[in-house]
């Protein structure tokens, strides 16, 4: 969280504190949704994901802030795949809940654009 806050220029001292109520910046959800949520997509060999892609759009809904010590259960789903001729659009939703209570924490929805020609 500290490295993320520094890499993205979040200046609130609560993101980089050594102790106390250490909070995650809103954008930090990228680290456990886009990167780790996307890992399931790469692991699915039948899906055919490849690196000739760009990130089209990204949405986050925050139900409560993320804190140091949280244990989240994040479930990725493919919402949609649309063929647009020279590209395919894949929408990946990741529902992140508090692992202990099941309470929703963050919902992520991202659209990835895969170009047909592999690198």
């Amino acid at each position: 969280m500290r490295e993320y806050a520094l890499a993205t220029g979040h200046t609130d001292g609560r993101y980089t504190a050594e102790e106390g109520d250490v909070l995650a910046p809103p954008g930090f959800a990228a680290c456990f949704t886009v990167t780790r949520g996307g890992a399931g997509m790469w692991a699915d060999t039948e899906l055919g994901a490849h690196w000739n892609l760009v990130h089209g759009s990204q949405e986050y809904s925050y139900h409560r802030p993320v804190r140091v010590g949280d244990l989240l259960r994040c479930t990725p789903h493919i919402n949609d795949i649309v063929d647009r001729g020279r590209m395919e659009l894949l929408t990946l939703q990741v529902d992140c809940v508090d692992a202990a209570t099941g309470e929703p924490v963050v919902t992520s929805r991202g659209t990835l654009i895969f170009f047909h020609q592999e690198p």
Binding site: Y15, P25, G27, A30, P65
Partner: peptide, 16 residues
């Protein structure tokens, strides 16, 4: 998007 998050959250004063 992360830097947009910084600009918005630093202005709002609280990530929550």
């Amino acid at each position: 998007m992360g830097i947009v998050s910084a600009v918005v959250a630093d202005w709002a004063g609280d990530p929550g």
